[in-house]
Amino acid sequence: MRPDRATETFEAQRPRLLRLAYRMLGSHAEAEDILQEAWLRWDRSDRAAIAEPAAWLTRVVSRLCLDQMKSARARRESYPGTWLPEPLIEPQDDSLRADNLTLTLMMALERLTPLERAAFLLHDVFGEGLDEVAETIGRSPAATRQLAARARAHVRIDRPRHAVPKEAGEVLARAFFEACRQGDPAVLGRILARDVQVHSDGGGKVLAFLNVIAGAERVARLYAGLARKPGPRPEFLGAVTIDGLPGFLSRVGGHLQTTALQIRDDGRIAAIFITRNPDKLAGLRPGRQNGLSG
């Protein structure tokens, strides 16, 4: 049965709206909830009076996200240990990427106010005009321009200057996994930046590092110690792209986890982002990709 015009219009916008909601909130589940509410409002609206459905839906989703971000910020302040965005496992075909945000930039966005984040995403990432963004967030164009500029300044230092070729990223991801599994400090010393940081998100549900682990020597000792412990060995399930960063999916002690690597221009690993919280991995299945296309 052919869907009606209202459904067709909404579904045509769904990929873009879903990416926007995810970038605003850092959560797949919350982004889906936002789209469900947006659909209900669209379905109840006087669509004949809506001249530009895409702009109307963008405003609705953005405003719903802004409301959601207030409670999300409060929840993250009491989050056990490090909070990371839910991992976005992306298609291997880079042409399917709809924006240029990496996990490191998603982390930088967490330092912004909700309005700064909205202004930056809508204007700089999703290409909305300044007047449209101002109307969406309920601020003047001049104030919106300042919000976007402040956000841009905050995230500029976290934007990588050069993208890592996919093949090089996969090689380094596999080398890092093997070095950690073997607890090989020599290899780790060659591939880790001196000021490398490890961020680990277990959400209080599974074991994870509660604090950021910093420094190549400390990180190498940590993985050497873990490799010496008795128990099941980590299992490599495949190289993947996680929010624009090279990484891999693995199973450790019966638990799935994703590991994303921020790689410097000199080829060394500057940051490691490990997601173990099962709530954030519920949609992942070994051997199948999961992500938001658009």
Rank of each mutant, 00 (worst) to 15 (best):
L261R: 00
V252Q: 15
Q13E: 14
A270C: 06
V133F: 11
G26Y: 01
P53N: 05
D265W: 06
G129L: 11
E8I: 11
A142Y: 08
A186D: 12
A173Q: 02
R97V: 10
E37M: 10
L35E: 03
A153P: 00
L109A: 02
E167A: 15
L281G: 04
S250P: 04
E30Y: 11
P286E: 00
T144Q: 05
I269S: 05
I89T: 00
M69L: 13
L130W: 01
G202L: 05
R19G: 08
R150V: 01
V133G: 07
R16D: 05
L109W: 00
Q146K: 12
R218H: 10
L172A: 08
L84S: 01
A260H: 02
L96S: 03
S78D: 11
G81F: 01
V252H: 13
R161I: 15
A54H: 14
S45C: 07
G231I: 10
L261K: 01
L188R: 00
G253A: 13
D279Q: 13
E135Y: 05
L35V: 06
Q289N: 15
E110T: 03
A260T: 03
R75C: 11
P141T: 01
G238H: 04
A168R: 15
D279Y: 13
A148H: 07
F10S: 09
L210H: 14
G183D: 06
F120A: 02
V196K: 00
L281V: 07
R63W: 09
S78K: 14
T102N: 14
I213F: 02
A119S: 05
V212K: 10
D131K: 08
A179K: 01
L101R: 08
L172W: 02
R23Q: 13
D265S: 13
K166L: 12
A151Y: 01
P286N: 00
M69E: 07
R145I: 00
G244Q: 04
E90P: 11
K229P: 02
W56N: 08
P87K: 05
R190W: 03
S200W: 03
D46R: 12
D94L: 12
C65E: 09
L109M: 09
V125N: 06
R264N: 07
R16V: 07
E217V: 08
F209Y: 11
F248I: 04
A118T: 09
L66H: 02
E135N: 13
D279S: 15
S27F: 05
V206N: 06
E32W: 12
E167T: 14
D4N: 15
T104N: 11
P160V: 12
D33I: 07
S140T: 13
T113V: 09
P141A: 04
L226W: 08
E52H: 14
E178C: 09
A282M: 12
A224Y: 06
P114C: 10
R63P: 02
R97Y: 14
V212P: 04
P185R: 04
E86A: 13
A208L: 08
A72R: 11
E77F: 03
A149D: 10
P85H: 05
E52P: 04
H123Y: 11
V133N: 05
A227C: 12
H199T: 00
A227M: 10
T258E: 04
A260M: 03
S95C: 09
A151H: 03
R97L: 15
S200Y: 03
R139T: 07
K70N: 09
S71Y: 05
T258N: 04
L172R: 05
R174P: 06
P160K: 13
T9H: 06
A72N: 06
E32V: 13
T259G: 07
C65I: 12
V171C: 06
R139N: 09
